[in-house]
Nucleic acid binder design. Structure first.
Lengths: 324, 324
DNA sequence: TTGAAAGCGCTAACAT
DNA sequence: ATGTTAGCGCTTTCAA
């Protein structure tokens, strides 16, 4: 009991006793058992972040933001990688509920995530959606403006004179992919360019599938082939570029390319295209802040929906060729 | 009690009772409290990974390996980012001990990590060192062969005819940096090239400082300036390249560059230099495996030391120019 | 200023 | 096949 007081309310222990206890703590390497404390208080000072792809720099930056906030608030972060799999995600959430984390930040893997999130909701476990909104669930969400972003990117290409513009996209099971498709179509409409379903490829937010998708576009007969591509995220962009290189095509002479999300490291080395950079780190800090508020007040309050603007970074607007 | 039996040893419960309990579990959304269970058993089925830079793809790949193994063994992974700060690292370890994690994987931030690790050792908490060895501590370690790697990279440049070769390195507080320096010196010796301290820059495993270090090298009078650079890791390499671009120098015409660690995304886009790729993911799986063995047997056994070979990937051996 | 009792939720060991 | 008891380590409450 006295030890507990020394660690929690040292001022309520006689200085002499305190000294002796502190001495013993050092000698024994005593560290209070947070499990016992958590069991008692129903609070673990732990939150979790589940991302859909830990290898994507976007999510790593986001994690950094989350970590900063967490550390500042005395929280620990458990990270989960769902790998875009709803099942893996469900297992994680299950385990995390077991561990009685105080709250969850999650970039849902797909529409199947709904069930998992309802589980949390029923238990009154606060959570905040990041990057991907799920309609039909009332929860805080921090995301980018995918519709506007895709519209701007597409418009950029149109203004450069392109008419046959392809979109290599993620799975339509992911909200951002649907929104980016919508933004792309909106831009086409605004400039009276007919939408050609053949040019809008549903792939997935991964390098390999995007490469395949792009190769298919390149296999089209010349008159139906696109002259420009909007890559729906950074990994897709890399797949697209790989396909182009395999086909011995240059950027932008043979094919213009723009992409959603920054490719930070890569563009530090070789700035080569126009990207729409999202403030990933801020996604993390804001979402964590929201979560902590929910945890502290354990108050419902209306669900907040923050849509952060992106920045069109003309790294070097279609101004360099890829092949040397 | 019966509920506990249903979740843990269902075969020892009458089918009828089991059914009813399972029904209730579903209805109530009951998830057993792992805190209570952990408190009882002194086991949390949680391990932690502390890396020195979560933004470095090397560590992200490593994390992936760890996660795979963890999931396969029914463990959860807590991730910590020490940001190369011994103090931040110490705070993390303290918090993790409190949470009674079963084991720790750590890429120590520096020599100051020794104290922190001793804390773990005194408490008999198993841990495995990753990527960075700490002499004077007896523990499993999984790492790459930095000495040989740096030697090979340096030799590669020597064979291309270079004699004034610079090394832009991490802080000598980090073991790998010291080892890479040693490998670099060994290669020079083998070819009877005198070691010039001016050309071996101690910076840090970060982009900014490396850029500064490279700029300093470029500021040397022409006859003392290097004609080639070994970048001691991927982030340093990027800093080096940035400095070269600022100085309007081309790779490899004006300055040859090779680097330790792969730059995966970047080189997918634009393979441009020779890199020494480490099997980061295997670092993770092997280290996790070691840790689980320690946890399960809770047996001491001799400390294992695994040194994984790297692969010299001639992405495009100094064969493309950077500036267009 | 310090100590004793009780209980957080679970399960090993021992009844029934 | 099911129930009871006890205790993991902590802290809230009440007592000394």
């Amino acid at each position: 009991m006295t030890v507990s007081r020394v660690t929690n309310t040292p001022e309520r222990v006689a200085p002499a006793t305190r000294q002796r206890v502190e001495q013993a703590i050092l000698e024994l390497g005593y560290v209070p058992n947070a499990l016992a404390s958590g069991l008692l208080h129903g609070r673990t000072r732990t939150i979790a972040l589940i991302v859909s792809d830990i290898n994507n720099p976007f999510f790593t930056m986001l994690l950094r933001g989350v970590e900063d906030m967490a550390q500042r608030n005395g929280y620990t972060v458990i990270i989960g990688n769902s790998d875009e799999s709803v099942e893996k995600e469900r297992q994680y959430v299950q385990a995390l509920i077991g561990k009685r984390i105080d709250g969850l930040l999650i970039a849902p893997a797909g529409s199947g995530s709904l069930e998992t999130l309802k589980l949390l909701q029923r238990r009154n476990n606060p959570f905040v959606l990041i990057d991907r909104e799920i309609e039909s669930i009332q929860a805080d969400v921090v995301m980018g403006d995918s519709v506007e972003g895709a519209r701007v990117l597409t418009e950029h290409l149109i203004k450069l004179g392109h008419r046959r513009i392809a979109l290599v996209n993620g799975s339509y099971d992911v909200p951002t992919a649907r929104q980016r498709l919508a933004g792309y179509r909106r831009a086409l409409e605004e400039y009276d360019i007919p939408f050609d379903p053949e040019l809008a490829k549903e792939c997935s937010y991964r390098r390999g599938p995007a490469q395949v998708g792009m190769a298919e576009l390149l296999a089209l007969p010349a008159e139906r082939r696109p002259t420009a591509v909007v890559a729906s995220n950074n990994l897709i962009c890399i797949g697209v570029i790989e396909a182009l290189r395999q086909a011995q095509l240059r950027i932008p002479e043979d094919m213009a390319v723009v992409c959603f999300d920054d490719i930070e490291l890569a563009s530090a080395i070789d700035p080569f295209l126009t990207v729409l950079a999202q403030p990933a780190r801020r996604f993390g800090t804001i979402a964590a802040q929201f979560l902590f508020e929910r945890i502290d007040r354990s108050a419902p309050g209306p669900a907040r929906r923050v849509v952060l603007p992106s920045e069109l970074l003309v790294r070097r607007s279609c101004g360099s060729s890829l092949l040397r």
